[in-house]
Nucleic acid binder design. Structure first.
Lengths: 141, 141
DNA sequence: GTGTATTTGTTCGTATGTATT
DNA sequence: TAATACATACGAACAAATACA
């Protein structure tokens, strides 16, 4: 699980962290139950403040991607939990709303229905490209 | 062109304005060349500050949806203009990036490829539902 | 034509809250 | 918790164009 921080990016650090952790979960590099580094160690590794890592973890918890157990550390959430399901549903609704806005803006630019769907398919292809079963216990991707 | 402001919304006023104007352009209710209300009159109608309207217009200009000609007022941008094309291309790249992030998060939640594409199609259906030819002066493309 | 009032977007400053670290 | 920066919304005043008596 290699994480890199771009200090010159427009995105705040905690969102960069969030994105890369989500990406790792999506690809299967991190599976439900897997532990994450402590906020202190990760902050130290990346050379950033522990508050920043903590914020990223907290956001991921609110969105249903992580479970935070205080001193016991953070782990990737099990999707069976009711609270996690609820959070994921909320995220799903956000996604729908965002898709709607994207499609509207696309049309306002003169784009076509087919163009939009082509781009959506490309994004999905990209996100689902890395095979889930390939990295059971591996590192380095 | 009915615009409504929700003061209790989480979205800032100028973004609510932006969204509704984009929606009007997408549906063909507003066509390239059509004039928009002056910032003062629209602000007065909505009971908000002229700066807030001006900000909405300014971001829409930056994104290539409007042309602002100072005192001559703002009009819906003609998509043939080079500067507009450039802005729209940039918006398109943003859309692709957002789609990628949405798809990744969707998969991290345990969602499937097909689910994502179904939601994307629903959003596109929604955005392209209102037929362009029904508007008083709709054409182009 | 001249002077005045009106309308336009812009400039500058301010208050308040939120975000980020 | 606190510091610092940024975002949001507003108000007063400005300069230029327009309308009109």
């Amino acid at each position: 699980m290699v994480i890199t921080i771009d200090g010159s990016s427009a995105d705040p650090i905690y969102l960069q962290l969030r994105g890369q952790i989500i990406s790792a979960i999506a690809s299967g590099e991190l599976s439900p139950g897997d532990p994450l580094p402590s906020v202190r160690s990760l902050a130290s590794d990346l050379g950033i403040n522990l508050h920043t890592v903590n914020k990223a973890y907290a956001v991921l918890r609110d969105e249903g991607y992580l479970i935070m157990r205080g001193r016991a550390g953070a782990v990737v959430a099990d999707r069976g939990l009711a609270s996690v399901r609820r959070a994921h549903e909320e995220q799903g609704e956000r996604m729908v709303e965002t898709l709607r806005r994207l499609a509207l803006a696309h049309r306002a630019r003169g784009g076509s229905y087919e163009e939009f769907m082509t781009e959506a398919a490309a994004a999905a292809d990209d996100a689902f490209a890395q095979d889930e079963g390939a990295a059971p216990r591996g590192e380095e991707n």
